[in-house]
Design a binder for these strands. Sequence first.
DNA 1: GTGGATGAG
DNA 2: CGCTCATCCAC
Length: 672
Amino acid sequence: MATTSPRKSASALWKGKTKSTLQDYEDLNPTITYRHLHSHNLGVKDPLRVIALCDSDAFYAACEQVRLGIDPSVPLVVQQWDSLIAVNYPARKFGISRMDRAKEAKKRCPELMLVHVATFKEGEKEPGYWENPDSLTHKVSLDHYRRESTKIIQMFKEGLPEGEIERASIDEAFIDFTRPVRDEILKRYPHLAQVPDNAPNGKDSPLPPPPTQILWNEKTTIVPISLPPPDCAAEGSGIAETKVVQETDEGEPCTWHDVALSIAAELMAKIRDDIYSKLGYTTSAGIARNKFIAKLAASYRKPNSQSVVRNAAIPNYLRPMAFQKIRYLGGKLGKAIAEEYDVSTVGDLLTITLEEMQHKFGEESIWVYEILRGIDRSEVKEKPSVTKSMLASKNLPQPIVQTSQGHHWIRVLAAELALRLKEAREAVPALWPKSIVLHIRQGYETSRSKQAPFPFSREITVDLVASAGDKLWKDLVGAEGSRKTPFKITNVQLSFSGIESMAPGQRSIEGFFKDSHGVGPSTPSKSKRKREDSDDESTVPRNADSPRASSARGDSADTTALVASSSLYSFVCTQCHKRLTLPGGVTELEDEEIKNEAMITLRQEHDDWHFAQELSRQSSSDQPRLAIRPPSHPSKLANVNERFATGGKKRLKEKAKPDMSDKGIAKFFSKP
DNA sequence: GTGGATGAG
DNA sequence: CGCTCATCCAC
């Protein structure tokens, strides 16, 4: 095979090595063949792979500066209560940092502009920028920043229809330039499209020599090969201005991969320019062969800049770096490694053989081993545009001691969740959280939580969410309250989980009775079976199989109509002609009010069901991409490790696990 | 499915 | 610091 597996070569190479040599980095200078260039599916093994990480400079501060139309040169910070959550670059010149209090900052720079984040307060449906937000009564909202972030991501996608985009956080995205860059290479060097007749090995012949000089984008910094950066995390460390043309750096010949990097740099610069002119945000980007290096490169020079790390520059770039700064090594695992070998830099760890590391930290250490050598095979993978959960959380400077205060905060949190879900539905139709969860933390104790199914509803109101939250609150705190145990709640979190676009026939009226009126437990099997029966039939709503369908009146704006029979709590849907009846457990109740309420709910939920189905039908024809794209996998570390552990292609076998359960790396990613 | 722990930004 | 989000795992 022309494409040699880096994994194989790395592990084969390392038997018994005690000192790192240039050979360690053979992966960094692969031979590139016509097959490589012409192939479309090499993925992470593509030797011409080019990845960028682009992040917004002092994002929250920039959002406020843009929102308020402030001149970008004025020092500005975003505050949350008394502390700072974002400091723009002009303000940093005054020595202001995120750890400062608002008072300190103002003292350092009297002209400083302080903007408080938007907050929710009880009774308001939307967050606002109030005069005197108080942490005792308000809750911060990051909504505006989320929306601005979405705009930026959208511009990446529009500017690069061929590139894969992965939103990494609210202010960062990875971009896979491999495909657009390859297209451009073939356009600029058309002779590469044809394998020459005299090529010794056909498609597996190496490409002809690349150009000896590269015209780097003028706004791009090229990380030098020989001279390692003064500090790995040299954020804004005044590095000399770059030249318009960089010749082959220090005699290191250009490669086709360098050509690829330079094209990516042009594309990246163009998009960043666009983002600035259209949205007003400056960004910093890193461009390199994989996500890991791209991420480091992005902070090589900030703000409003971009940096390229050529493969040849990687060894010296990584060697002096404190490895605990590397993503996923910042926690317990990094600490354990540091202590085990009593070292701190990447260079220190290069002397550790793969076998040694795996013996100590398990099979999966191959991931760390390769990262240290500039290898990172994680993919740039678009994440689902909506997150699977939504959390609104509030720390209570003044602990809650009675339940009435609980209801207050739940209402505030519910308002936020309701708004966010509503907004999310603007993008993805028929979104529905399967559960609602309430977490509380008391003092030092570990937090407890309760969850419950959340009914589908077309209209997400504060009341709906708050009442669900209140029930959970009663479950959690009610016991304590009634026992008259004093409680001090220091944190409250309300969240939606299991958010998905509604699949038809999912949820009906069950939750209403069970949760609102306590009917469920007494007649659980009965009401449950009823529900399922009606669902099963609802799955084929087009079939007008109800004998009484003709009695339905079709002239209403509603899709359903009540049957005028007072003894029977049922109705026939005008759309699917299906009769829906209240569960037995409910009709046996005395309370007319509840039964009427139940009818309304039943009808509303049935309408909602049709509504959701309609929407999901539209969306599936609107966005065929979703069906065509490969399924998104959990990604990240676990899967990367999985692939390594199994040789790159096969599924993970059961047997791999016992080995590392004991002292393996695995335990550092979970609880001890 | 639930509930807790951990980590990143 | 305070807040949001994701993943993993034991139960």
